[in-house]
Nucleic acid binder design. Structure first.
Lengths: 183, 183
DNA sequence: GACTTATAGTTAGCCTCCTTATTAAAAAAG
DNA sequence: CTTTTTTAATAAGGAGGCTAACTATAAGTC
């Protein structure tokens, strides 16, 4: 799934110019914001291109990742549709649809839970596991390639800066700044 | 439009653990990659929430941005469906659909081009312009709020690092690293 | 001028992903 | 037991993306 996004970002001087018309426009904030949106999109497109070559989609991949390697601690992992929905930040109905398609392709199986008969226990089939083990090495190599231009220090810095923004974004959604409550 | 994304990222130690199973997994690259995906998504969701409050969508907003203020140089701007498609990195058919809905809402108008009768000249209506001028200040304030935790220097750094990744991503799509051509 | 090729936009059909609202079953609380 | 809560699935709907095919126009070639 692609997302419509600007191919060419406005030059910084253009933002400064636009700020004359819109006093609320902070050129450096706007520039950082647009670069973030675009970088996320570019990276997403690169991955989607890889997925498409394997007849899978982003959504299905994430679901299978959450089902992979349940034994580990520390990695998010899920066993039921409700857990998957929560971990992936989508509705349960969305997960039902994704599981339907994954089950149709033979990648996952829904088993009844013996202790709670409302719940389903979702599991990767051997075919699903084999599929993941087949595509993951390439997946990681693409990540490496995308991050190759950054030194270890730069990666740390990037993670730190993005973390600040993510934290701010979750606050923002609780208490929107629309009314002018600029921090 | 939301995109399915991991709510909780794996801890770094978990990546190191997983790397034992997948030799291609570089923990720092993977960590940076996931933070980037998630930050882009969080920021996008925040904006989408704002758009939803004004009964507009991301795609329609971008189209209207491209139509706004045509006189400026330096800012990407478009007049025809084909230009919009190119600048927004989507197919012409997608633009047709977006313009249909924008026209239905009275935000844009398609005028025939007098010189080339194949082309259409797309323009914001006064209602469309008023709408943009109504929502843009809030839009910019949200950007400011999201970027508030970053100093001017940090913003510059972020833009620089993201730029490297974007450049790398476009190379990547031309010459995929799947075959092991790691840079 | 007539033929061929290229371009602009729309249309049609299809897909994924996401939503809310409803239903049915099971579990938990009283 | 009855009521409330929870789980999962289903149904209906929408946005937004794609390709392929079609129409109309323009432009290039002989």
């Amino acid at each position: 799934m692609q997302r419509l996004v600007l191919k060419d970002l406005p030059r910084y001087e253009c933002l400064v110019e636009a700020a004359k018309q819109f006093p609320d426009l902070d050129p450096t904030a706007c520039e950082a914001f647009m670069h973030l949106i675009r970088a996320g999109d570019e990276v997403t497109r690169t991955m989607d291109a890889h997925f498409a070559g394997h007849s899978i989609t982003h959504g299905r991949f994430i679901v299978m990742m959450l089902l992979l390697e349940k034994k580990d601690g520390g990695c998010p992992q899920a066993s039921t549709p409700a857990e998957l929905a929560s971990l992936a930040s989508v509705s349960r109905a969305t997960i039902t649809g994704l599981l339907d398609s994954l089950e149709r392709d033979g990648f996952v199986r829904r088993d009844p839970d013996p202790t709670d008969r409302r719940q389903m226990s979702v599991n990767l089939t051997p075919k699903g596991q084999a599929f993941m083990h087949e595509i993951l090495p390439d997946h990681f190599r693409i990540m490496n390639s995308l991050m190759a231009p950054l030194s270890e220090n730069e990666r740390k810095t990037l993670v730190r800066l993005l973390g600040k923004i993510v934290d701010r974004a979750s606050e923002e959604r609780e208490a929107p700044a629309s009314a002018g409550s600029q921090t």
